[in-house]
Computed example of a mutant assay.
Amino acid sequence: MAKILIVEDDRDLAQVLSVTLSSKGHSVQIADGGAVAIDYLRSFKYDLVILDWMMPEVTGIDVLKAYREKDGKAPILMLTAKAEVADKALGLDMGADDYLTKPFHPQELLARVRALLRRPHSLAALLLTAGDITLDPATCQVTRKGEEIHLRPKVFSLLEFFMRHPDQVFSSEAILERVWMDDSLASPDTVRTHIKLLRKSIGQTGESGLIKNIRNRGYMLSSSSK
């Protein structure tokens, strides 16, 4: 199973891609625009990025350039309606690993995804650790003292976000912007509920432990907690 980011402003197509990839056991997140994608890529690690070229304001090429300039290593599959060789060459020269011209058949997409995920660097995500918790971004597996913990998808994303930003305080609004970017109905109450679920899942009782409340400021993962 791979963790895949779909960057596509056509919500219907993004949903089709998500269902297709999820049916093969992959963990999928969707960014509905270039700016959102850049924020996701700063906050999380992915095994593969499927990136639409033609998006308003922040284009796929803009996202690709920003990601590679920050030394992003995940393979990138560009989706494009551009059939000209020069356009495809531009994408490859900017750091894309492959491209797929729209319209395409789902089986062709899956074949390209399999090929890219076979490359050695595609599963090179490092394990994240905090206290007795270990998170593997590549397999979406979390363990505590060696025992696997099963988390809901958003609880997993919340934990991964905290583990990538230890000892930093985030308000509920800041967490919403980074973890619930694709959910306009989420609220600070949503964050509080998921914080409680996360604490319960990792065996934390109360507010003293790995995930701390910082009065009048927000939440923080404390790297010094045991």
Rank of each mutant, 00 (worst) to 15 (best):
I50P: 07
A130T: 05
E69P: 00
V113N: 04
E108F: 01
P75S: 10
V49I: 12
I133V: 13
D97E: 14
A96C: 12
L117Y: 05
Y46F: 15
L128H: 06
L79F: 09
L92D: 08
R119A: 13
A89W: 06
Y46G: 04
A89S: 11
V49N: 10
P75C: 12
R114P: 03
M54H: 08
L51Q: 02
L64Y: 09
L92P: 11
I76E: 02
I133L: 14
L48M: 10
L110Q: 12
E84P: 01
A83C: 13
Q107P: 02
V85F: 08
M54C: 08
I61G: 06
L109I: 05
G131C: 02
T80D: 08
F44M: 05
K73C: 12
Y67G: 09
D136K: 09
R118N: 10
L92C: 12
H121I: 11
G72R: 02
L128K: 14
F44P: 11
A66R: 09
L135F: 07
P106M: 01
Y67D: 04
T129M: 11
L100T: 00
F104A: 00
H105C: 00
T59C: 13
L109G: 01
L79S: 04
L48K: 04
K73V: 15
A125C: 03
L51K: 00
A111V: 03
V113E: 03
